[in-house]
């Protein structure tokens, strides 16, 4: 009798006698691969164009496009779930997370300005070393409201700091995850969804809105591993009302993804920009509605880029303020 379990596994290997593809099968599969087009975007455009031509009533148009948006979102998220992939990290490395985008700043005279900002975080891949934060100064893009300024508008020059605490030493939650907290989340979409809806129970105005917000929060962190991203994309597919708002949302750096979001009760939307071809959240944007009359329509877009680096740049280390922080009652005090 065979007493090694691995020998029993080999005996019962369901793939042991799988044959190679014959020439016809091989050719067919290669033809399909080369001929396949990224249908999720082009199909969305075609469907929307076709619908636009047929629409005779605004209500019908809204209904049809909402349905298409949902189906499109499902397809985009499905592709993103399959393609989620991470560059392999080495111990000691950091994720350099760069967020570049627009925001709204106000001055003391109640003027509002659209400004451009860049934030860079250096997060240890193991979560066991403190994070370094670099906040660049804002530059004005244009004035949104209020009387014309009497002089040049300047903003604070930015800041660079770190703390004595690593992510693993801080309380972790959806909007501030640590690697071990992320590792403990279920990878099964049904279990993950149950956890998400349990954590959002009783929060916000709408349970589905809040669930979407929590998923956006954790994905925004930029440190979610590929298998969990894949499960989160699957969960997003199941949140009612999640639709593609823009099949080709373009970031300033040229990257393009599908903007996926929901309408909140004010009509503005928080959207994730997902690249279905690499299973990454490459940005996010907020489309302000006319409800915010003092602002008018505005779209705030932030690009998110993550790359592995071996160390925190020397100038960042030299210039950073060192915050002394403690954890009390699950709160970080600095």
């Amino acid at each position: 009798m065979n007493l090694l379990f691995e020998d029993q596994m080999r005996t019962s290997d369901p793939g042991a006698s799988v044959p190679a593809y014959d020439p016809d099968e091989r050719a067919k599969m290669l033809d399909e691969a080369v001929a396949a087009t990224p249908v999720r975007r082009s199909r969305g455009r075609l469907l929307l164009a076709a619908c636009a031509a047929l629409v005779v009533a605004g209500l019908i148009f809204q209904s049809v496009t909402a349905s298409i948006g949902s189906a499109q979102a499902s397809e985009v998220l499905h592709q993103a779930a399959i393609h989620a992939f991470d560059e392999r990290s080495r111990p000691g490395q950091y994720w350099q997370l760069t967020r570049t985008g627009t925001n709204i700043y106000g001055d003391q005279d109640n003027r509002l300005f659209l400004v451009r900002v860049e934030h860079v975080d250096y997060v240890a891949v193991d979560g066991k070393r403190p994070t370094w934060f670099v906040r660049g100064g804002a530059t004005t893009v244009r004035q949104l409201s209020g009387p014309p300024p009497t002089g040049p508008v300047t903003w604070s020059p930015g800041d660079t700091w770190t703390t004595n605490l690593s992510p693993e030493q801080m309380p972790a939650y959806w909007s501030l995850p640590s690697p071990s907290w992320l590792a403990a989340l279920p990878r099964d979409p049904a279990q993950l969804r149950a956890r998400l809806y349990a954590d959002t129970e009783g929060r916000g105005n709408n349970h589905d809105d809040e669930a979407f917000t929590y998923v956006a929060d954790v994905l925004r962190s930029g440190i979610v591993p590929a298998d969990l991203r894949s499960a989160l994309f699957e969960v997003l597919r199941t949140i009612p009302g999640t639709t593609v708002k823009d099949a080709e949302a373009r970031l300033d750096d040229g990257r393009v993804g599908a903007a996926i979001g929901r309408n909140d009760i004010f009509g503005s939307t928080g959207q994730l920009i997902v690249d279905p071809d690499n299973g990454q959240v490459i940005g996010e944007r907020t489309v302000m509605s006319t409800f915010f009359g003092f602002v008018g329509d505005a779209t705030l877009t932030t690009g998110i880029a993550a790359r592995l680096v071996d160390s925190v740049p020397k100038n960042v280390q030299e210039n950073a303020r060192r915050e002394k922080c403690t954890v009390e009652n699950d709160e970080v005090r600095c």
Partner: peptide, 19 residues
């Protein structure tokens, strides 16, 4: 390139999936 990739790894991918 795709053909070489398929010839080199197609069978292992197929076995992985069938399993």
């Amino acid at each position: 390139w795709l053909e070489r990739l398929f010839d080199q790894h197609g069978l292992r991918v197929r076995a992985f999936a069938v399993r």
